[in-house]
């Protein structure tokens, strides 16, 4: 069969595959998951960018029918699309935890997720534990972290501190994590990170019916409306179990609350394409929200049993 080359970029590797012309998104996605040995596939997706808008490969649509650049290798990023409500309970496999750790760490360092200075230092210390193992002053000599990107620039710029002083601060915490294996250190990292307000939120620039600029946030728990100046605390939240229906028509998006006394919330997003993405993220997040509130599937039960062994 005729094939074309795809390049898959994960948080820590790049791979190339020969993809058959007729393959659907699912065929490629499954191949990537198998190659990675990843079984908790439901959190992930293959992302591409089209005209500055993020898009995700649809499982039931042919890879080549997507609006991707046909120049080979066709490139996709294998990333977490949905986030667990509780990393420790839901992320079973080490590979899943590791990919989440890498993705969330990057978001924090890139300041996509706001993280206060103290928490940033603590997170850095767990990242160091994960990478270097137990602290040993005879091995980890002054300057051993000099080449590492460990803190968001905003945090570094807040204080009059030299790199040596930062290293000292981080190392003081790092020394406390003695005995933690890599996977444990990464899980401790995620447990702190998941409490940050912006963790797991997909933000979209929207305008309400009066034309006021706002942000819509989609996450594991529901939909949130923010003032663009404050991405931390929503002005309004619509938890999944208080929503009756969501829909879009062209650039308009409607959230219909369950309670008829609460006003329907309508807004406009910049493009029809964005509304499609919002709806996709809503369906996926709500699906996981419901599944969490049911008993574990047989597959997850088996994985948890294996992980315990």
């Amino acid at each position: 069969p005729k094939t074309f080359t795809v390049r898959i970029v994960t948080m820590d590797a790049e791979m190339e595959f020969n993809c058959e012309m007729k393959w659907k998104g699912k065929d490629l996605f499954d191949l990537v998951c198998r190659t990675l040995g990843l079984r908790e596939t439901w959190f992930f997706g293959l992302q591409y960018t089209i005209k500055d808008t993020v898009a995700w490969l649809k499982m039931d649509k042919k890879v080549l029918d997507h609006d991707v650049s046909k120049e080979e290798p066709v490139t996709f990023h294998f990333l977490a699309k949905f986030y667990p409500e509780n990393a420790e309970e839901e992320l079973v496999q080490e590979i899943t935890q590791h990919l989440f750790f890498l993705q969330v760490k990057k978001q924090i360092l890139d300041e996509k997720i706001y993280c206060p200075p103290e928490a940033s230092v603590l997170l850095a210390s767990y990242a160091v534990q994960a990478k270097y193992g137990d602290y040993d002053p005879s091995v980890h000599k002054r300057g051993f972290l000099a080449q590492e990107e460990l803190l968001p620039k905003r945090v570094i710029n807040l204080y009059q501190m030299t790199p040596e002083m930062w290293e000292e601060r981080i190392t003081a915490w790092y020394a406390e994590h003695r005995g933690r294996a890599r996977d444990e250190a990464e899980m401790e990292y995620l447990k702190i990170a998941q409490d940050l307000e912006m963790y797991g939120v997909n933000y979209f620039a929207i305008r309400n019916k009066k034309g006021t600029e706002l942000l819509l946030g989609v996450d594991a728990l529901g939909l949130h409306i923010y003032d663009p100046e404050n991405r931390l605390t929503p002005k309004i939240s619509f938890p999944w179990n208080e929503i009756r229906n969501i829909s879009y028509s062209d650039k308009e998006f409607t959230i219909k609350p369950l309670d008829k006394k609460i006003d329907v919330f309508k807004f406009n997003s910049s493009k029809l394409r964005v509304n499609k993405l919002i709806l996709q993220l809503c369906i996926g997040n709500h699906d996981l929200f419901m599944r969490r509130r049911k008993a574990d599937s047989l597959e997850v039960q088996q994985m948890k049993a294996q992980a315990r062994e």
Binding site: S247, D250, I283, M290, K294
Partner: peptide, 20 residues
């Protein structure tokens, strides 16, 4: 392909469909 210009998702209905 003509773009689908409308979409809807019944959040409540999805709950109801969920086997208990």
């Amino acid at each position: 392909l003509r773009q689908q210009r409308m979409g809807t998702y019944g959040v409540r209905a999805a709950w109801r469909r969920l086997p208990q």
